[in-house]
Design a binder for these strands. Structure first.
Lengths: 119, 119
DNA sequence: GCCATTGGTACCCTCGAGGGAACTATACCA
DNA sequence: TGGTATAGTTCCCTCGAGGGTACCAATGGC
């Protein structure tokens, strides 16, 4: 069952984090707390219902987020981070930090991007 | 050019780390230091030349690893982590740590896996 | 002359993530 | 009677990551 002794554990984390929208969803839920579907959707311009639903389901299946359905008639469904999901925060933070400096580095390396400012 | 102010920075890190083999390559290079192509390949059972070359090139393009060619005749090429690549270590560590507890958790949740031991 | 070794490249294929568009149910509002 | 809102689902399509296989170049060993 185990493949590379010890090595592949991070694949577990990666497997949960990859997906174009999952990290964004998690950050939103971590920052702003419990939110309903439509609010999340509005905060992620470009995502479709289909995609948002799918990503949310997958996160729910992994017990990273929680889904609460209110049986009202304009339906209401609220999503929130689970205790367990919150344990992913260090990873997201590390990635965010690294990503920021990576972007800064790339901008420093490519001064051609500055052309616009020269005109 | 920027999409979600602040949010998408971790995508930079994810973009580099995803790829079935990249994290494994990085861990090998981080743990065991400079290594030549064939050694890396041997350490990753299941990977093909084509794949290893591809993943290494992509990491090199991002300046995460370094490629040194010795003009000998059975060719010799050595790969090593760059200073910059080493800055990814905290992320890999965080993921590894989380992944380990995730695996432990899954095993605790699914005692059906124990069936084998009951026979 | 033939094979092995090393680090590749070239070509082709498969499968699934991601995504677009349309449809659904139910109640309220005008 | 028709429109709006919410949270989905269903069907279909595209594109690229991953992968399999074969080939190459240059040399040393038998």
């Amino acid at each position: 069952m185990k493949k590379e002794p010890e090595f592949c554990q991070f694949q577990e984390a990666l497997g949960i984090l990859v997906g174009k929208w999952k990290p964004v969803i998690l950050v939103h839920l971590l920052n702003d707390g419990t939110q309903r579907f439509s609010v999340l959707k509005r905060k992620m311009p470009g995502i479709t219902q289909r995609m948002l639903t799918k990503q949310l389901r997958e996160l729910e299946d992994e017990d990273i987020i929680q889904r609460v359905i209110y049986p009202e008639i304009p339906p209401k469904v609220e999503y929130s981070i689970t205790e367990y999901g919150r344990s992913l925060e260090p990873i997201l933070e590390a990635m965010h930090e690294w990503g920021s400096s990576h972007v800064a580095r790339k901008q420093a390396e490519e001064p051609e991007t500055q052309e616009e400012k020269l005109s």
